[in-house]
Design a protein around this nucleic acid. Sequence first.
DNA 1: CAGCCATCGCGTACGCTGTAAGGAGTTCGA
DNA 2: TCGAACTCCTTACAGCGTACGCGATGGCTG
Lengths: 255, 255
Amino acid sequence: MTTEYSGGGDPKRSMELLWGVPDRPRRGPKPKLTVDQIVQAAIAIADREGLAGLSMRRVADELDVTAMSLYTYVPGKAELVDVMLDTVHARTAEPDDDRGDWRSRLERLARESYDRYRRHPWLLQVASGVPVLGPNLLARYDRELAAVDGLGLTEIEMDLLVNLVADYVHGAVRGAVETARMRQRTGMTVEQWWQSYEPLLAQVFDPERYPVAARVGSVAGAEYQAPADPARSFEFGLHRVLDGIEAFIQSRAGA
Amino acid sequence: MTTEYSGGGDPKRSMELLWGVPDRPRRGPKPKLTVDQIVQAAIAIADREGLAGLSMRRVADELDVTAMSLYTYVPGKAELVDVMLDTVHARTAEPDDDRGDWRSRLERLARESYDRYRRHPWLLQVASGVPVLGPNLLARYDRELAAVDGLGLTEIEMDLLVNLVADYVHGAVRGAVETARMRQRTGMTVEQWWQSYEPLLAQVFDPERYPVAARVGSVAGAEYQAPADPARSFEFGLHRVLDGIEAFIQSRAGA
DNA sequence: CAGCCATCGCGTACGCTGTAAGGAGTTCGA
DNA sequence: TCGAACTCCTTACAGCGTACGCGATGGCTG
């Protein structure tokens, strides 16, 4: 169990943090920390222990200060998460975004997003529907749009397509992340968990009441050794989504 | 900001609550409450105030008992959420699940799911990747599978298709839910929020650095009067997903 | 019909959370 | 040199889930 944020704070203060204000000459004692140190520490904690494990005191401990000291650098936890969100969207290298056709470009971006969620599972809990846009989030949006630019689509259609892929990836990565989280918390693999859970289910399961689920569930349970196979789901679904987009682009080209 | 659960508790106790144990003759004082009353009160609170507003004390207040009394009926909060999850998947009527072709069946189920998320936004925070299956969740899985049964697909393919739709709906409904949540918390509509946020963004936004985003963003911002239009995104994406599934089913029929 | 004891409901307590308020010490600009 | 600005701290509050243990209740057994 974990906590969800973003947009909770003051957007103005978040934007200042994200884009950097030209800092006026400082008068008092030298700051012991930087905002970036705090953000990096917070990201490390959230990666390891989830958003539920992220607390101001925990971050402060890591940096050998008290919790309240952090409020000198950051207005509050919500704004800190806003900056964390933008920060993990930074890119180390600027690779081959333009290579290939639109389909391979979109697929590459979808996998990049999937991998980011896997690396930073807490991203799933950060509300990004009404995001506070930092430089890296904007850069990502720009890259995604560029992947479907020049195909004769309207701007709105480009936006909708990019949203579709982002929405699907978000939905699909949940299974994998929750599986990993369960393993971390309980020390059990999904297979082990399934082996102890399946008998419980069998006790109450009535095949006549759920005929299709009975048939499909038993085949899937045997094949996955678990109730689901998130990685396989993602692969399968991604191709279907891209097929759907392909049909749309072809129909627009014909119009 | 809210809290995420499910699977956190003891699966065995959750299963007992979900499927009902034949209760042995009770000896002590008459119970003041039933599990169902507690679950209904908890759902009402979560609907109104989000999962963050759901606390044992809050539920107890609503029912005129103390927090600790609830632990007579429910092992803990995690198991309570498990039961809440299954309960909101109950159906009032048994309508026309079989009507139409697979596409209209799947679309109807997707919209039903979308509406449920809108009615119970906290569902988005409940981890369902490793769900504790109750009768209603199983019934839903059965219905979804039945929608793609008899098309010549393998069981695994049926499972993957059903997952794909569920994942997409989950991803897509987030935008709408977060928009509604923002309005509830801040009292602002998205349009109002956008009017105050857009100038902040314009101050730091460099069109040369984000050329495609600049073009698309300005068109979309003007058209939506917001950074996005979640309802429209869902409609658009759902049709693309179904198109992708259609392509798959046709290719399988040909094989 | 008495008495046992399972069960219900409650009061208290612990360690955790985000952060408001205010005080002490440090360093720069005037 | 001295006030203003700034950093960092201690203290405190209201909230959380829930472990523990205590009285009161009331159906089953003798």
